[in-house]
Amino acid sequence: MWVALGIAAWALGWALNVWLAGRARSRATALAVPVIFGLTIVFVWEAAVRGFGISPVLLPAPSAIAVKMAASGGLIWEDFVQTVIKGALSGYVIGCAAAFATAIVVDRFDFLRRGLLPVGNFVAALPIIGIAPILVMWFGFDWQSKAAVVVVMVFFPMLVNTVEGLRDTSSMQRDLMRTYAAGYWTTLLKLRLPAAMPFIFNGLKLATTLALIGAIVAEFFGSPIRGMGFRISTSVGLLALDLVWAEIVVAAIAGSAFYGGVALLERAVTFWHPSQRGHG
């Protein structure tokens, strides 16, 4: 019964999307198609769990997850504050600010740029998450160590992107600034920083995901008795998978909101860039 319903829902959702995608592309269809796809998947999930009688210990149904989220709101909120606000957000701000300041200095001295960029690129490709246990040892179990992990994780992608961005002006533009008798700081503020903004926001967006991952994974190596990573690892041990999934949903929403917020800010700041125009 549920299996048939699930298959029917999948077919219906897909057919609806095929029909919508065949129509002229507009804002409404661009929004509706992925939403319908997502809803279909959630429904098929629910139907599969009920139809095949999958044990909630393995995979809880979406409805069970929603119930759990509503029931333990206070607990989840406490974890959210500990991990996202205290750990990820403070680390994100410190790390991005430090990387930005370093990038300005690196850009000033060509020798540093040629030396630091290859090293930065190399470090950015490394499994940085591995320093989590070391930093937890240095800064203790509370949120400071999580913020430190986040700082290190976001630093290098941000640094590399900002340095790239600061080089993104043509010599023609710089010459124009010179004919205006603009000094280094004026050129930096009026020309090169604005021109670097698309790159800087690219780094900021990359860093949002890294920040959440860093804060959560760092909690696996030791944390006080709250926090999303702590809750996930202990609930898995207790086989309370509905709580785990509730935390994951919260993490996903927080991650998407974080990313979306930075993307909105980007649209406001870099409204002049070709990639942001033409959406009317």
């Binding site: 998450i129 990573g229 690892s233 898995v236 935390e247 993490a251």
Partner: peptide, 14 residues
């Protein structure tokens, strides 16, 4: 945008 590594322990256990 989902911190997928957070799910790692669950995937392994399940």
């Amino acid at each position: 945008t989902i911190p997928i590594l957070a799910i790692a322990p669950m995937i392994i256990v399940v």
